[in-house]
Design a protein around this nucleic acid. Structure first.
Lengths: 138, 138
DNA sequence: CTGTGTGCAAACACTTTGCAGGTGT
DNA sequence: ACACCTGCAAAGTGTTTGCACACAG
């Protein structure tokens, strides 16, 4: 039994081809994938809408998280901590987008530094996106 | 002569009603505005397309910068440093989005802390978005 | 007068919703 | 058997492009 099947079982989701394939796509890439990345990669096998719904399901369950990818597009990446659930997500790592190859990776090893907000502000969630050149393109 | 007219002159842009009104909208709000915010605020006076083009012109000239506003929407805010030009933008302040009122503000007083990327990564630009509750909503 | 800005129409990209039928458990 | 998942159609939203006319300099 592969990782995808295990994951689906673990989160009480039904085993379907689309879900397995999407999970496999994420586990076999180290970078974040957008909806259209998935569409290209999975070919014509699944409907655009089904992919949207599957992504939404995974985000709701705490399997994937949305990644800020410069202004505009939405990408998704696996939640690698156990701190994400259907209740809420908790991410404090940095996202790095390579301006050459366009890939966005989660740099789990770097935690977002704590900053002191001015009086009156309450922090709930912090996102940090670094853009530049990745080791592969350098 | 008001601020908007001065700004347009300074950047060698023609004086038009749309440009003045959009600049005035930004100088009279302390938070970032989206295209639809502007549409609502300016009423029916200008075409949707003209607003898009005006925003693009201002970003190109270094008058406005795009603000990452959670995943999805694009907002714009005034460039308050002199480090932005038609050549390139340079922002290192934190953006704060209030999850209650939905407003996004530039917190100019807080600079994004420097982080050390792993070997091989080259940093070009950094964006930081903090979400939580602003003083007004607290 | 000339080049740029604007409005209108249309195309395009992205995402969501409703419904009928198919599938996992 | 039943609830849930999928595909298809369609609509909603956000953004860009082409073209003709209007207007600032």
């Amino acid at each position: 039994m592969n990782i995808a099947r295990n994951t689906l079982k673990e989160y009480s989701l039904r085993q379907t081809g689309c879900r397995e394939d999407i999970l496999n796509a994420f586990t076999s890439h180290e970078y974040a994938l957008s909806h259209s990345d998935l569409e290209n990669q999975l070919g014509e096998r699944f409907d655009r809408v089904t992919i949207y719904r599957t992504l939404k399901t995974f985000v709701d369950k705490g399997i994937l998280h949305k990644v800020l990818d410069d202004v505009g597009g939405t990408k998704y990446a696996l939640c690698r901590t156990s701190e994400c659930s259907h209740e809420e997500h908790h991410h404090d790592h940095v996202h790095f987008k390579c301006t050459t190859c366009g890939n966005t990776t989660c740099i789990e090893s770097i935690h977002i530094p704590t900053i002191n907000l001015p009086q009156g502000y309450v922090r709930k969630e912090v996102n940090m996106l670094v853009q530049g050149v990745c080791p592969n393109c350098n």
